[in-house]
């Protein structure tokens, strides 16, 4: 009699532990935030590689464009990410695969959208500068950690981080350009980007340091 009870208890304990482990693993696997894949590299045009050693214009939007100036393309990139169900990693992969050939055929031809043509043109004309990239697959950049607190409440957000890409591909300084409104998101994004590796900007074949804007979108998994 009591032996059956022991068996049942053991089974329950084992089931509970397994369920716990399973859930933990599942959460870790699925909660990785979707962040803008290469398809939205359009945003990087903003990186309009500034001459190295120059501080980012963001604190004092003097000569360069103010942060607002790149807002126009946002709706576009946002909407592209909105279509993006975050489980549909496959689609992201497809897009990536689609994007690859273009990038390969015209590596230097990351065309700034019309809204930016004006500000970045003068810079780009005299020296063909290839802006830094953070999306190449081999860089293996880890996704930011989704803050658990916000994840549990299904809160998402968008952070724009401006990162200084040094000639060796490492990240120098990082600045918060556009906050998500949640410090947790901002911190997670900054911490993640800080550790990233980049393809450095090039001016005529020589790696130079430059600034690049990295949009990071946190999207809760239960959001449609």
């Amino acid at each position: 009699m009591s032996e059956y009870r022991v068996r049942l208890t053991a089974l329950m304990i084992v089931l509970a532990v397994h369920a716990g482990i399973w859930r933990h693993l599942a959460v870790e696997r699925e909660s990785q935030p979707v962040f803008l894949p290469p398809a939205t590299v359009s945003v990087t045009m903003e990186s309009a590689p500034r001459p190295m050693a120059e501080p980012p214009p963001e604190p004092s939007p003097g000569p360069a464009m103010p942060p607002e100036s790149w807002l126009p393309p946002l709706p576009q990139s946002l909407s592209s990410s909105a279509v993006f169900p975050d489980a549909a990693v496959e689609r992201a992969r497809d897009e990536l695969a689609d994007a690859e050939p273009h990038a390969a055929s015209a590596p230097a031809a990351i065309e700034p959208p019309p809204a930016h043509a004006a500000p970045s043109a003068p810079l780009a004309v005299e020296a063909p500068i290839e802006s830094p990239r953070f999306d190449a697959a081999y860089l293996n950049n880890p996704k930011p950690k989704y803050p658990r607190l916000l994840e549990q409440r299904g809160i998402g957000g968008r952070v724009l981080v401006r990162a200084e890409v040094q000639p060796d591909g490492r990240c120098g300084q990082v600045r918060l350009i556009q906050s998500s409104g949640f410090k947790l998101f901002d911190d997670a994004a900054l911490a993640a980007v800080k550790d990233w590796r980049f393809v450095p900007a090039r001016r005529g074949g020589q790696a130079v340091s430059a600034w690049v804007d990295v949009p990071i979108i946190f999207k809760p998994e239960n959001a449609s």
Binding site: E3, R7, A10, L11, I13, V14, H18
Partner: peptide, 18 residues
Amino acid sequence: LALFSIASWTVILVKIWI
């Protein structure tokens, strides 16, 4: 595998007790 694991762990606990 999950089933395997659950079964074997249940047996392990019960056997230790017995």
